[in-house]
Design a protein around this nucleic acid. Sequence first.
DNA 1: AAATCGTGGAC
DNA 2: TGTCCAAGATT
Length: 371
Amino acid sequence: MDVAFAEIVEDKVRLDDRQTRRFRRLLSGWYRVHARKLPWRGNVDPYRTWVSEIMLQQTRVAAVIEHYSVFLEKFPTVVALALAPEADVLAVWSGLGYYRRARMLHKAAQFVTKELGGVLPRTSEELRTLPGIGEYTCAAIASIAFGESIAVVDGNVERVILRLMGRPEDATAAGKTYVREIAASLVPAKRVSLRIDEASDFHAKINASGDHNQAMMELGATICLPKAPLCLNCPVYALCLTRGEHRTLPRGKQTSRPAAYLLALRKDGTATEILLERRPDEASLMAGMFEIPPLPMDAVEGMEPMLRLRHAITNTNYYVQVFGDLPGLRSSLVVAEQDLSWVRTSKLTEIPLTGLTRKVLKRLGVIAVKV
DNA sequence: AAATCGTGGAC
DNA sequence: TGTCCAAGATT
């Protein structure tokens, strides 16, 4: 390691004790006033905190809100989740993406049910051993549900800290360690209480570390925005070294691709059925999930689709065309017969559809516009 | 360590 | 039909 690099690594600027206390005070005061009302806030069930944290991984709040309550109505407890077939879990997860999360949450629920009597562990260290729970999520659940004094570091917290301390984004191990250390220095000690004022029927749950962590993320999500931060509304503006500057690493390139799908419907008595294709279990993407059958682009050359839409998958924007069951089109399907099945449209909410198929069917009114 | 895994809102 | 990127985990 060259000398210059060593010096940079050792140059750990850190808030002193007085600044740290001030930071906490300013942040918590702001959070009490500005915290968004979200469905998983104020909840007292660790299972619900767990579900919310898994759903929120790399996923926008708005998308989670659409699925959170439906998921909990269907699987109200760890045991209920553990007993459900995986396909049912995926069906409710449909549209949220990163389906491995649903599979691992399901597996973890089965472990908790069988081995732990259906009771979720109470420490970050034990939570960390469950499938789907990594460094961020174990800290989030432990602090929010159980008051443990441990820092969470998500994308928001990282950005807030880098701007606060005047550091550029840094994907190396040293960079991550730096952010973790600063985050840890800011978390208050464990302090949990339930304050109830009988006269006014006012009650407030106090959880110093859990609220601090949520406040850090809330600050990043609503004030310390990636592009145009709202510094003039920032509670810790006075302590911030950069006041908005954020040097980020270059991103991967986006690409665009065309895609075509077949929407084939038929009547069975009064019921309507739709032709779906099951993706192979070996598929790296959305294995075992159902979608309307893909069509080769050359089979639809020059034809007019019934629907056009964009569908983004990681770095690819798919510009999708959906075609009705026109003569000859079905013969251009490339899949094996046994991977195709006719499904009653009334049962579609019970089936693990891919996000794209779910979106298409909603847009065309084949399934009701609800989750 | 770097790639992989979904999606959609915002601009 | 361009780009960014969000309460990450796993391999």
